[in-house]
Design a protein around this nucleic acid. Structure first.
Length: 405
RNA sequence: CGGAGUGUGGCGCAGCGGUAGCGCACUCGGUUUGGGACCGAGGGGUCGUGAGUUCGAAUCUCACCACUCCGACCA
């Protein structure tokens, strides 16, 4: 991608009133744009990051047998009445009417929709277990969106739902997803603390949350010093003084529902091996993918900008040319860009005729892990600098390609 | 929803009774080129919205709207 064509360009100043790092840096660097409170456009580079996060999630979920699909975002009131959530979740749910007064909800989750699919398509224990997921927009009527992209009224989430013939099977799968989540977050670059917490409008039982330490986090977790044993302060009943209280961002959670909360209310039955009609056991599992992007920025940044982990960086390298008057060296940037792109490397290529200082400042702000510079100094070679280190080295183009593929 | 703050060119801000200005960005010309260069010439604003006070309102009053932060709430 040529920087001259990239939409939009990095900004020199942070938006008014921005406090959190993710808000200031993602907006300045051109990853997101705010439409209204809690509502953001994912600009091309922001979308690239979210796509990479989604790909990691997809790979790990598919590996444990989950199937991706896509469900509608506008739901009829009737299906929400089946579980009583049209009333009980009315505060978080956007409810609307069409011109003929028919009532709808904008999706804030999909338990009812999945249970409806299951009761229509699952008839035998042979159809179970079943795990389906999708990536979609969630709408939540937050009274106060805040923290940049960390809490919005409209955001992207991966939600996974599993259905089982027995509680034992559900518990086993629940642990499997929990492990997959740890693997996902490890690949993204998070040091995760797993906590038990209250389930809100989702379930009366406790849920498991995946927390990333960050000062701007809305949750307080209690950590046993020197370990990853942690509890959400909301439900903690022990002696708090023995624990260290830290702020954290909840990037994922998993809810075991059993067979009462949804299956019983909605008639989610199947015929078991013994010929008996039984209720399906149900669980759901969420990861807020746009929140994950914000949390990455909270964890990985310095005073100059973002420092993306390789796994979710919008591009692998940021190639910068420094303009000069020597005709021969001007072409070097184009040549390196062509060679790297040809090798399948994702390159953001800053070929603009701006000052070195401005181009370097933008590179630091955008935060691609590797910066390559081509100039008179490097001649037919390339200068390599890691975003999170000070030093540089001059390399042959072949060596650069070898390191990146 | 309670409390606090802020709304002035694309962005960040100053102006706070006498008809709008700065920096950045943008356009054109020229000079520069390893850490946010410089010179010259330009374009761009119903001062959040509405009512009021006044000879006169960006500026004062009231209402409303929007955004940000704190709290309550919250997968």
């Amino acid at each position: 991608m040529r920087y001259s064509q990239l939409f939009p360009k990095a900004k020199r100043e942070a938006p008014k009133g921005a406090v959190t790092a993710n808000h200031k840096l993602l907006v300045r660097a051109g990853f997101i744009d705010q439409l209204m409170a809690g509502s953001w456009t994912l600009l091309p580079m922001g979308w690239r990051v979210v796509t990479k996060i989604n790909t990691i999630i997809r790979e790990e979920l598919d590996a444990i047998g989950c199937q991706e699909m896509l469900m509608p975002l506008m739901h009829p009131k009737e299906i929400w009445n089946e579980t009583g959530r049209w009333e009980s979740a009315a505060e978080v749910m956007y409810q609307l009417k069409d011109s003929r007064k028919k009532e709808f909800a904008l999706s804030f989750t999909h338990e009812e929709i999945v249970m409806d699919l299951a009761r229509k398509h699952v008839t035998s224990y042979r159809d179970l277990p079943l795990a389906v997921y999708h990536f979609s927009t969630k709408f939540r009527n937050e009274t106060r969106p805040q923290g940049g992209i960390l809490r919005g009224r409209e955001f992207l989430m991966k939600d996974l739902y599993s259905l089982h013939a027995s509680e034992a099977d559900l518990v086993a799968f629940y642990e499997k997803v929990s492990e997959a989540y740890l693997q996902i977050f490890k690949r993204i670059g998070f040091d995760i603390y797993v906590t038990e917490a209250a389930g809100g409008v989702f379930t009366e039982g406790h849920t498991r949350e995946f927390q990333v330490l960050a000062e701007v986090g809305e949750d307080t977790i209690l950590i046993k010093p020197g370990t990853h044993e942690a509890y959400n302060k909301e439900i903690f009943a022990g002696e708090e003084t023995k624990f260290e209280a830290r702020r954290a961002i909840e990037v994922g959670n998993i809810f075991p529902f059993g067979d009462k909360k949804y299956a019983e209310k909605m008639g989610g039955y199947f015929r078991d091996k013994d010929g008996v009609k039984k209720l399906m056991h149900f669980a759901s599992y969420g990861i807020g993918t746009t929140r994950v992007m914000g949390a990455v920025v909270e964890v990985y940044h310095d005073d100059k900008g973002i420092i993306w982990p390789e796994s979710v960086a919008p591009y692998q390298v940021h190639l910068v040319t420094l303009e000069n008057q020597e005709p021969g060296s001007r072409k070097q940037g184009e040549k390196v860009y062509t060679l790297l792109s040809g090798a399948g490397i994702e390159v953001l290529y800053d070929e603009t005729q701006r000052s070195a200082g401005e181009k370097f400042a933008d590179a630091d702000l955008i935060g691609i892990p590797v910066r390559l510079v081509v100039s008179d100094k490097t001649r037919d070679r390339v200068e390599w600098k890691n975003r999170d280190e000070e030093g540089t080295e001059i390399l042959e183009v072949d060596e650069v390609i070898r390191r990146l593929v």
